[in-house]
Nucleic acid binder design. Structure first.
Length: 972
RNA sequence: GCCGGCGUAGCCCAACGGCAGAGGCGCGUCCCUUAGGAGGACGUCAGUGUGGGUUCGAAUCCCACCGCCGGCACCA
């Protein structure tokens, strides 16, 4: 078949030889891409180091650091949805460069992680082989788009030179602790010195030995110090995912209790794992959101995730079975003011005090006959009831908990606590509506002021005491709003009449004075589980000493710790639902690598390497810093380079990347982790910026039509045709249209390569930028692409004769009308560029070009308008702009030229048409001389006979004149 | 349920509180063309989700509701 359908804009025999066709576009584009590469057009100089050549040329210019969320190099290649953000940043960076900024813009690859490993397993190749092939393919696809990246700065997280520094940063974190007095991280050696000097006690919960520091053995001291570190080993219930063969961070588990990647079931089970003490930074991560220019939605998600709440911890005494004193139960509440209304207590089923508080026999009194079966679970002995309930709670997956109605369940432990405010004896329950992972895992239940407690109290027939006066006519159950306290006084403290805030303050004072409670802050954020049982990740720079089993950090001089070559890098995975399985890191099989003799200061000794690897997020926690100084082998980044590109720009500025563009799906994972690392590096004096990303922008998603047949199966969207009546057909079958994310599963993928083939890269770039503001999602519509393609053809025709290839521009003077149009356009195009609303810029360029076409239909438009037009096009469609610029006789790349500036003198018209309104309704339009003076304008308008006629016989009460726009007469 | 975002022609989208339309798709007519065509010219379509309020004037600001999208959710 000689005739293919791809000949959309292909030259046909009668096509003029110099028409801008896809074929010509391709020639132009590849030529300029080669030249950019050859000349290093986008090489950006640093203040110091190996990339500093030429810095003195730009030293006095403003700087701009533009960053894209770097991609994971997938084996599937790109579709047209992927580069939306990359094109946006490229246009912005090119524009700013033409304004004289020293712009840093590059692109790297986030290449470690599960998908790379899975893809490698599928294709039977080593992950490094597939990863590198995928990166090469992606580089090729992106290069063809004409992105103006400094290719010298590109990195992949899998490069040994890169992950060496990832390991180095891990060591910084490991060798640091959080000084809560100074509210910052400090080197661990400072802590040891202070402990030795006796000027500091070990922090709460870090000394399990119960003896002072001075009396501890060296090994015990090591344990205490390790308990302070920002990276620490911890045995605790973690998210174990047998289907992936690894544990996962909380952030990687969906609310349904499944893995975000792969959607496998996740089980909680206790394991010893590396953790990062991100909770130490919770307050600062929350507070500093206010310094950031980020979308409100993302800030909100981070606030939600951190979940800070202020309240109090209160210890409730308990009554032992023999009538003596039992263990105290510590609870957390955000409503200490409601203490007088606490009529029972609830522990999480997994709470460590449950066994101790479970009495041998049901008490004789205190259980209401009406709900006895519920309280006891129908069991004769409390221990049986508790065991049965616990079994049931642990077997229920989170999914089941979601599906079930929130009918409250629980059982009585048989023991009682004492409400410290009222002295009343109150029963203690376990119930699964209290979670071990939040607060202290125990609550005081105040049914009067809490809906969940109310629901439980109703079912279990427990007393309800209101402690806040509900408003007049309140018919609801629990009242959670504000109001004066009631029923809240004892001999020592009286809250009655106080509103919530004041009541909280008063009761906390009382609790603290009595030593039974104190005001505290709790966060939902947990420490970050940092180890994975996978092969394809950064090895930890950690070994274990066989003598004490404790970890030892490797010194900096032993970095990098390279991944060993092993035969079988596949993870050990299990049946999805095999919750009895144990994680087995693949690196454990590399026995030659694991067993190692090192001299860590005690002479050569056998050690065992850590066989877990770091999570995928590690590499993306700091790549923005490495772009600044990618080849530096003395430091992860030279401080001077960091200060220049990312340092605070003025008093009160947090510093960071000037524009960071990426999808909204990383709201809490990458963005939170990267902020955390950055703050640690800041505390330790390695960076000058407080935050990594000052301005964040979420690009929209490109969606595409997908079609389903009668059976609900997706059919190839390329083959579907729309009929006149608006119905869609696949062959002779009518199909149903829906919109969704582009991808294989919906069979609606459109690739950049198809677009290059039919139109060229400039058209693709222009189309993606034209369909809407960058932050908006929009549907892909292949047949609408031709609109911007025509625009490029028309611009081309205004410069180049399609038959001869000769220039058709003249050297004539501009008429005033065109000059005004030009300057108006320049102002508007700039405005669109500044605000990342490239759609507006393109529309204004189109308008100017339409004007030129109409004014000079047979060519001959003056250079004075054509050249600025080409310059304005340059950031958007750089190849055609370069080509036209060079054909116009310029030697230099258009990238080195200055963006046109609007002349204010030509922004205003000599005469303007203003609207004349009567009471806000437009009644007349008149042309009057332009003026800035409202009084002059009003006079001019009144002088118009049509207006005079309009006002005939009416009383003008007031006239509002807005220069350049309108005059509104308010008439009786 | 709570939080955030968005609703303007058939579709994608513009409009410092000031004349609702910049641009494109689609559609229609005509020109070029043996023909087809994604070449050219001209034209076509909404009163801004709904209801209130502020204002001389509201797509724009405020309130309530409706719809769509996203996030969180037994978090004490």
């Amino acid at each position: 078949m000689a005739q293919t359908t791809s000949s959309t804009s292909e030259s046909r025999p009668d096509t003029p030889p110099f028409r801008y066709t896809a074929k010509l576009a391709e020639q132009i584009e590849t030529t300029w891409q080669d030249r950019w590469e050859r000349e290093g057009t986008f090489h950006t100089p640093n203040p110091v180091g190996d990339l500093s050549a030429g810095f003195d040329r730009v030293a006095d210019r403003p700087k701009l650091y533009v960053l894209d969320m770097f991609p994971y190099p997938s084996g599937a290649g790109l579709h047209v949805g992927h580069p939306l953000g990359y094109i946006g940043t490229d246009v912005y960076a090119r524009y700013k460069r033409m304004l004289g900024f020293n712009v840093l813009h590059t692109m790297g690859y986030d290449a470690f992680g599960l998908p790379a490993e899975q893809y490698a397993v599928q294709t039977g190749q080593h992950p490094r082989v597939t990863t590198e092939a995928n990166i090469a393919n992606m580089r090729r696809q992106l290069r063809r788009l004409g992105l103006g990246h400094d290719s010298r700065r590109s990195i992949a997280t899998t490069d040994v030179d890169y992950y060496r520094w990832t390991q180095w940063i891990f060591l910084q974190i490991y060798n640091a602790w959080y000084d809560t007095d100074a509210d910052r991280a400090r080197p661990i050696d400072d802590l040891i010195a202070e402990l030795d000097a006796g000027t500091r006690e070990p922090a709460e919960g870090t000394n399990p030995f119960g003896r002072p520091w001075a009396e501890l053995s060296p090994t015990e001291r090591r344990v205490v110090v390790d308990n302070h570190r920002l990276a620490y080993l911890h045995e605790a219930p973690v998210n174990w995912c047998p289907g992936l063969g690894t544990v996962l961070a909380n952030e990687e588990v969906t609310p349904e209790g499944r893995s975000e990647r792969g959607n496998f079931p996740v089980f909680r089970r206790p394991l010893k794992q590396w953790m990062m003490r991100i909770t130490a930074y919770a307050d600062r991560l929350l507070r500093d959101l206010d310094l950031l220019d980020w979308p409100e939605a993302i800030k909100q998600q981070q606030r939600n995730w951190i979940g800070r709440s202020e309240g109090a911890r209160i210890t409730f005494p308990t009554v032992a079975p023999d009538g003596g004193e039992g263990p105290g139960i510590e609870i957390f509440t955000t409503r200490p003011d409601t203490l007088f209304g606490a009529t029972y207590m609830v522990l999480a089923p997994e709470h460590p005090l449950v066994e101790e508080l479970t009495v041998p026999e049901w008490p004789d009194d205190g259980i209401p006959a009406s709900a006895r079966d519920l309280w006891t679970g129908g069991h004769d002995r409390p221990a049986d009831a508790v065991a049965a309930y616990r079994r049931r709670a642990s077997s229920r997956s989170d999914v089941e908990r979601q599906v079930e109605t929130r009918e409250k369940t629980g059982v009585f432990l048989g023991s009682f606590a004492v409400n410290p405010a009222t002295g009343e004896r109150i029963p203690v329950f376990i119930a699964d509506y209290v979670l071990m992972g939040y607060g202290t895992g125990a609550i005081m239940a105040v049914p009067g002021e809490d809906e969940r407690d109310w629901a439980f109290a109703e079912v279990f027939d427990l007393p309800i005491i209101r402690t806040v006066q509900p408003p007049e006519g309140w018919e609801g159950k629990a009242y959670t709003g504000d109001g004066p306290s009631i029923n809240s006084a004892n001999d020592e403290v009286d809250l009655n009449g106080l509103h919530i805030d004041e009541a909280k303050r008063r009761i906390i004072e009382w609790l603290e004075a009595k030593g039974i409670g104190k005001g505290t802050v709790t966060t939902k954020l947990r420490d970050w589980l940092f180890s994975r049982q996978r092969f394809w990740g950064e090895p930890f720079p950690i070994v274990y000493d066989p003598d004490d089993g404790l970890p030892r950090a490797l010194p900096e001089s032993m970095l990098p710790v390279e991944l060993p070559d092993i035969e079988d890098y596949r993870p050990v995975t299990f049946a999805d639902d095999d919750d009895t399985s144990e994680p087995v890191p693949p690196l454990a099989r590399a026995t030659d690598w694991v067993e190692v003799t090192l001299d860590l200061g005690e002479g050569p000794k056998r050690y065992r390497r850590e066989t877990n690897t770091m999570p995928q997020w590690a590499g993306s926690c700091w790549y923005e810093l490495r772009y600044l100084d990618p080849n530096n082998d003395k430091a992860f980044v030279d401080p001077e380079n960091e200060r220049y590109w990312m340092g605070p720009q003025h008093e009160g500025d947090c510093g960071g990347v000037d524009l960071y563009v990426g999808g909204a799906e990383h709201a809490v994972l990458h963005l939170l982790y990267a902020r955390f690392w950055h703050k640690v590096l800041y505390d330790l004096g390695h960076v000058s910026s407080l935050e990594p990303f000052r301005r964040l922008f979420n690009q929209g998603m490109i969606q595409a039509a997908a079609y389903t047949d009668r059976r609900g199966m997706y059919v190839d969207a390329h083959e579907v045709v729309e009929r006149e009546d608006g119905t869609f057909w696949y062959g002779d079958e009518q199909v149903n249209r829906e919109f969704g994310k582009m991808g294989k599963s919906l069979k609606n993928t459109v690739t950049p390569d198809e677009m290059y083939e039919s139109y060229g890269a400039d058209t693709l770039r222009l189309y993606e930028m034209f369909t809407g503001p960058l932050d908006q999602s929009r549907p892909w519509d292949t047949k609408a692409v031709v609109g911007v393609f025509r625009l490029l053809q028309r611009i081309w025709r205004n410069v180049v004769d399609e038959d001869t290839g000769e220039l058709v521009v003249s050297d004539g003077e501009l008429d005033d009308d065109t000059r005004r149009k030009l300057h108006r356009t320049i102002a508007d195009v700039r405005d669109g560029m500044e605000n990342l609303r490239f759609n507006v810029s393109i529309a204004k360029i189109t308008e100017l070009n339409n004007h030129i076409t109409q004014r000079w239909p047979d060519g001959g438009a003056p250079r004075a308008v054509i050249e600025p037009l080409v310059l304005m096009l340059a950031p958007l469609a750089p190849h055609i702009a370069e080509e036209l610029w060079s054909r116009l006789g310029h030697e230099r790349s258009v990238c080195a030229e200055r963006f046109p500036e609007p002349d204010p003198a030509w922004l205003a018209d000599e005469t303007v048409e203003v609207a004349v309104q009567l009471n806000g309704k437009v009644r007349q339009r008149v042309v009057v001389p332009a003026t800035d003076d409202p009084a002059e304008l009003e006079a001019a308008v009144r002088a118009d006979p049509k207006v005079a006629a309009l006002l005939e016989g009416r009383t003008v009460r007031k006239a509002i004149a807005v220069p350049g726009r309108l005059v509104n007469f308010v008439v009786a």
